[in-house]
Design a protein around this nucleic acid. Structure first.
Lengths: 198, 198
DNA sequence: GCAATATGGTATCGAATCGATACTGAATCG
DNA sequence: CGATTCAGTATCGATTCGATACCATATTGC
């Protein structure tokens, strides 16, 4: 009784393992390891504040040294491009190259998952997302680390007008698509929680 | 719109990564890698049909060679015991040693998760479990592989009387505790799906 | 029975991940 | 402008992991 949280953990771990296996499979042709594939997927969805080795490392739970090597490899393979930040010249910015985007387009690392969830109603998915997101947030508060999230639901998100947005933390204006990318500066809004973009 | 399955995937992967990190942390004292910890947790919950290298390999998504080495290490450390099956002498059976159980008891690899889910109502957890379980099952049907599950909800599960159970596939009688362990022969019951033990 | 084949597990090898440590260059703070 | 912090890289060694080959036991076909 009350073991249900553990059942949930078991499922998350198992599905995680399976997706890891899946990543290994889709990367096999290009000799890419699961981490490399995950990194590419991350970069495809990271916003302008989060396309750095550091953010990626935190996202994947790896140390910066390890990340550095993986990026080196992805760079050599021409799957990503690295360039210096204009303002802080210590930081390296990352973006997918055309080849990298093509790879993701061809490999479709998430296809198996899409299929596997085809019978789950949007509503149930929303509920599961909400529960897991809250778990993630609590976990991150307990430890340190960023929860990673998207603008809607973030403390710093400001809506200027119907289609104009702004990040209160960085002070930048944001486009619509900007607000749908992953950001590591994400912090949960204090008030009413739950639900995200629909 | 309709990207929600991907959001769910992202959460599962991220939580999976975090728990992996957590496993690395708790295993660090004993020089155990995440896989080793996961293997111990699995063995602590596997039923009599599922305590073999093969089942473990399928559960973790690793090849039998890899598993064999991990088990070798766990054996050398005295965390598990290996013994031959009486009937089929090719198969090796595994069980936690007293040391192994003590390790799990001390390390509490699931504690961080328990904490992280403390604010999620049992109901929401149940819903999330149900959605993820269905995802897992569909995934396993698409590919091959066992979904791993527990007796309630399994096609082969038979209730003989109030407290007597039986596995229709193996033909064995099962005790109450038996029915709450992980089994790799699990198959979803055809009819009404959803919900499990409460 | 007995060869042929299948199956569970192990041994060996090489590639690659990963963390630890030390290091470089840039920013910030006094 | 020196001291410290910080982002990232380089190097190293331990370990994981898959691939392949192998061994012992089961099973099947004849």
């Amino acid at each position: 009784m009350d073991k249900n949280p553990l059942v949930l953990l078991e499922l998350v771990e198992r599905l995680g393992n399976l997706m890891r296996q899946e990543a290994r499979r889709v990367g096999a042709d290009e000799q890419l390891s699961p981490v490399h594939v995950e990194a590419l997927v991350y970069l495809a969805n990271a916003n302008r504040y989060s396309n750095t080795p550091q953010a990626l490392g935190e996202y994947l739970g790896l140390t910066k040294g390890t990340i550095s090597q993986s990026l080196l490899l992805l760079d050599r393979r021409g799957l990503i491009e690295r360039y210096q930040d204009d303002i802080d010249r210590r930081v390296v910015r990352l973006r997918l190259s055309a080849t990298g985007e093509q790879f993701l387009y061809d490999a479709q690392p998430q296809l198996a998952w899409i299929h596997a969830t085809r019978d789950i109603s949007p509503n149930r998915i929303r509920n599961a997302v909400s529960a897991l997101r809250e778990t993630l947030t609590t976990f991150q508060i307990d430890n340190d680390g960023s929860p990673f999230g998207k603008c809607p639901g973030c403390k710093h998100f400001e809506r200027l007008s119907a289609r104009a947005y702004r990040c209160g933390l960085m002070g930048d204006r944001l486009s619509g698509p900007d607000t749908r990318k992953i950001c590591w500066l994400y912090e949960v809004k204090g008030g009413a929680s739950d639900d995200d973009e629909l």
